[in-house]
Amino acid sequence: MSWTWFHKWGSPKWFYALAGRLQPWLALAAALLLAVGVVWGLAFAPPDYQQGNSFRIIYIHVPAAMLAQSCYVLMALAGVVSLVWKMKVADIAIHCAAPVGASMTALALLTGAIWGKPTWGAWWVWDARLTSMLILLFLYAGVIALGNAIGNRDSAGKACAVLSIVGVVNIPIIKYSVQWWSTLHQGATFSLTEKPAMPAEMWLPLLFTVLGFYCLFGAVLLARMRLALLQREARSGWAQAAVRQALGGGLAP
């Protein structure tokens, strides 16, 4: 089997061009999916028999929470690629994905708190899911802080790669221990996402928003990575050509 397709991903120039082609499609898909999902979910889906209209926040909360976790896994995978195959593009992916993942985690926490007020009567409850989400936010904060603290960009990228791999090994352990802790300390409350037999008109819009969030994430990540690639490769000919082209070719070299 030929590995050239894989090593192509390590070429900044090739990745920049590919990302440029993919990004508009992802953005378009995100806009369509989110528009359909949000309008359907917020306006047309039937209210929950127990929670009334407050359940509708799951159309934002669930995609954000799913994305928050997938983003960390993505960072760890990029970390493995960065350490094993020494690909600069993977370093950049970690660097660019971390703030997006952190903001998704924050969004999930915020929507969880807003949902908690009418449901549990408190903004914050030490529920297992919310607590693991909070810890995930701390893990993101660690990666971002480490990346900012190390001056040398190559070292910063590799250090963040190691930290995300360590983090991803720990995430299941943290998750199970927090679940255990919460079942020991309080009775089971009814949860935001584990709903028995959600009717189709309730979960279909959720599917749309989840896919929409993933497409949005892809589009934002690619945009950030393209910018970071241009900065990192500012010395090379292709990056200078790309910047000139983006500026409309009006500037003399």
């Binding site: 352990i173 221990s177 802790w181």
Partner: peptide, 19 residues
């Protein structure tokens, strides 16, 4: 920074030990 990186990883040990 060390505290920031490491304390989240300490949580399982804290839960199990104090548990």
């Amino acid at each position: 920074l060390l505290a920031l990186l490491v304390l989240p990883l300490y949580i399982p040990v804290l839960i199990l030990g104090s548990g």
